[in-house]
Structure formats: C-alpha cells, structure tokens
Simulated scan of single mutants.
Amino acid sequence: MSKYLLDKFLYTVDRDPELVERYREDPAGLVTWWEGEMAGKLLNCVPDERTTWLAFTEEERRALREHDHVALFEMGAHPFLTLTLFIAMFERDHGPLEYQKAYGRAMRHISLPYPDIAT
C-alpha cells in the first residue's frame, strides 16, 4: 500500500475539473485509467520501473471506486485531500455545509490516535 499514491490520486483528480466529473460519474473507470496511465507518469517513472507502490491494493481500489472517504482516511489518505475532492463532487447535491457535516459524522467513530497521514 502506498499512502503517497492514494494522496497523489486525490490531489491530481481534485485539481482537474474534467477528472472531478469523471470520478463523480464513473469512479471505477477513472481509478482504472488513472492507475494504468497516470500513476507512473506523474511520479516520473519509466515503464521498466514498475513496482508495487505504483499500484493500488484491492482495498484501496474498492475505497476509491466507492468514494469511501472513511476507509481512505483509515488507510492513511490525508483528510484534507478527500474532503476537498469530495466537496467538489458532492456539495452541489446538498445545502450549505450539509455535505461537510455529513463527512464529519461519518468519521465520528474514529478516535485518537488518528491513522498516520504522513507520506
């Protein structure tokens, strides 16, 4: 598992409005495309340098496909990256601050010490 790769996915998708929409509409398709096409390029790796840290685990893929921000946080993804991306995708479907409050409520069961979010 690579927390860096998870965070890189969340960061790059959040910064591109087209990718945000693709992730909202077809998360499985975007995750597959990003992992196969972008992971190595964004990390400046040549094809012969494929290693396991350039691929998501099945658990990470599932959480990304299902937009499961709680599982992503529990795996060590940075909460600011999931929050900003998920706000971009889902805030429009809710009233003011409703999505942010629901996001927090979903993580209410997590207590200190929080998962390590260092990369």
Rank of each mutant, 00 (worst) to 15 (best):
K8P: 02
K8V: 05
K8T: 08
L10R: 10
Y11A: 07
T12V: 04
T12Y: 14
T12Q: 01
V13S: 00
D14S: 14
R15L: 14
R15F: 09
D16Q: 07
D16N: 15
P17I: 03
E18T: 12
E18Y: 12
L19P: 00
V20A: 08
R22D: 03
R22G: 00
Y23Q: 03
Y23H: 12
Y23L: 10
R24P: 02
R24H: 05
E25T: 12
D26F: 13
D26L: 13
P27A: 13
A28N: 04
G29N: 15
L30I: 02
L30F: 01
V31I: 05
W33F: 15
W33T: 03
E35S: 10
E35T: 04
G36N: 14
G36M: 15
E37K: 15
E37W: 11
E37H: 07
M38H: 11
M38G: 00
A39Y: 06
K41A: 07
K41Q: 12
L42Q: 08
N44P: 01
N44V: 02
C45N: 07
C45W: 07
V46L: 13
V46K: 13
P47T: 04
D48A: 09
D48L: 05
D48Q: 08
E49Y: 09
R50C: 00
T51D: 09
T51Y: 06
T51H: 10
T51L: 09
W53R: 10
F56P: 07
F56S: 04
T57M: 09
T57K: 08
E58F: 08
E59T: 08
E59R: 11
R61Y: 07
A63M: 12
L64W: 05
L64N: 03
H67E: 04
H69Y: 14
A71K: 13
L72M: 06
F73M: 11
E74D: 04
M75H: 05
G76Q: 08
A77H: 01
A77F: 07
A77M: 07
A77E: 02
H78K: 13
H78P: 01
T82H: 00
T82D: 04
L83R: 13
T84S: 14
L85E: 01
F86E: 10
I87A: 13
I87C: 05
M89G: 09
E91W: 03
R92A: 07
G95P: 07
P96K: 14
L97G: 09
L97H: 10
E98C: 09
Y99Q: 07
Q100I: 15
Q100V: 15
K101G: 02
K101E: 15
